[in-house]
Simulated assay, not measured.
Amino acid sequence: MNTGQSIGVFDSGYGGLTVFKSIAKQLPQYNYIYLGDNARSPYGDHSFETVYQYTLECVEWLFEQGCPLVILACNTASAKALRSIQQKVLPVKYPNHRVLGVIRPTAEVVGEYTSHRKIGVMGTRGTVNSNSYLLEINKFFPDIEVQQQSCPMWVPLIENNEHLNPGADYFVQKYLDQLLQKDADIDCILLACTHYPLLIPKLQAILPSGIELLGQADIVANSLDVYLKKHPEIAIKIAQESKRRFFTSGDTETFDQHASIFFGEDVQSDKMHLKV
């Protein structure tokens, strides 16, 4: 028997909803709580310490809501906060809780999508500067060469719902060109930010033939499915009532308007009050 608890899904804003959408589709039976820290997003340009503090506060809030398992559906939080939370916080304060990220599951399978063994990673400054993907991909596929490109304008464009307008074309083309100038033989581009799938129509329109765009949502959903099967002691705690709740640290009306774009259906959120 489960204990009526939920799986927590966290992101700095809206992007994690693209991951949550895939998780809820693949594992619809579980209860979920989604939290977007919109009041303090985007995380991409914040320091490691700031991202760690923000992420830890939100993770602990989800623990308080009854989430024994939290998914950091945010590359920046996964890059800058996950390891410290897993190694320093959980063993001491929450030994029965688990926090997972999006970088390792992606790194474990990325080698299946490249024949040239050359991959491009497009992400926020925070994710790129952390070199997390370089390190993780090298663990599993030391033969793969990785080029990285930060895309600082993409998240603001997406969060302001300007990403499909003609004005966004310049920045989409600019960062793609900068990446491909580093290595013309790249045959797989990893969208290492959960916001970026909303740019796929524009990217596909200008992408040279022979290059595959790789999003993370289905990869993370598959990984979570496998994790829960391997860890029945965690899975048994999660209620199977198909309930979903959404929270934001920002304005709920604004969140609901934007969230539906990412999640693919209407969203009604409640306010999460920050401890500041």
Rank of each mutant, 00 (worst) to 15 (best):
I206S: 08
A205K: 15
H195R: 03
H231E: 01
I206L: 13
K230H: 08
P156T: 05
V172Q: 01
Q149T: 08
W154P: 10
D185V: 05
K174W: 00
N165F: 13
D218N: 15
Y227L: 14
L224F: 10
C193Y: 06
C193N: 07
Q148P: 12
T254V: 06
K243I: 08
K182R: 15
I234L: 12
G215M: 04
C188W: 08
P166K: 07
L228W: 03
L214W: 00
D185W: 00
A239R: 04
P156N: 03
N222R: 15
D256F: 02
I211Q: 10
D177K: 11
Y170N: 01
I238H: 10
K174P: 03
G167F: 02
Y175S: 08
L190N: 06
A168M: 05
S150V: 01
Q216E: 15
E162V: 01
Q204E: 07
P197K: 02
L199I: 01
Q178I: 09
P201C: 06
L199P: 02
L224Q: 06
Y227P: 12
Q149F: 08
D185P: 00
G215C: 07
F141S: 15
L199T: 03
D256G: 13
L207W: 04
D143T: 15
T252Q: 12
V155R: 12
M153N: 14
I158N: 10
M153S: 13
K243V: 07
L213G: 12
D256M: 09
E212W: 02
I189Q: 02
T248Q: 00
N222K: 15
G215Y: 02
I144F: 00
V220M: 11
F246M: 05
G215E: 11
P197Q: 04
Q257I: 09
W154G: 06
S242E: 06
E212D: 12
T194N: 13
N160L: 13
P197T: 01
L179P: 12
A217N: 11
K202N: 05
A239D: 07
L198R: 11
I211D: 07
L164G: 03
D183P: 04
I238E: 09
C193R: 05
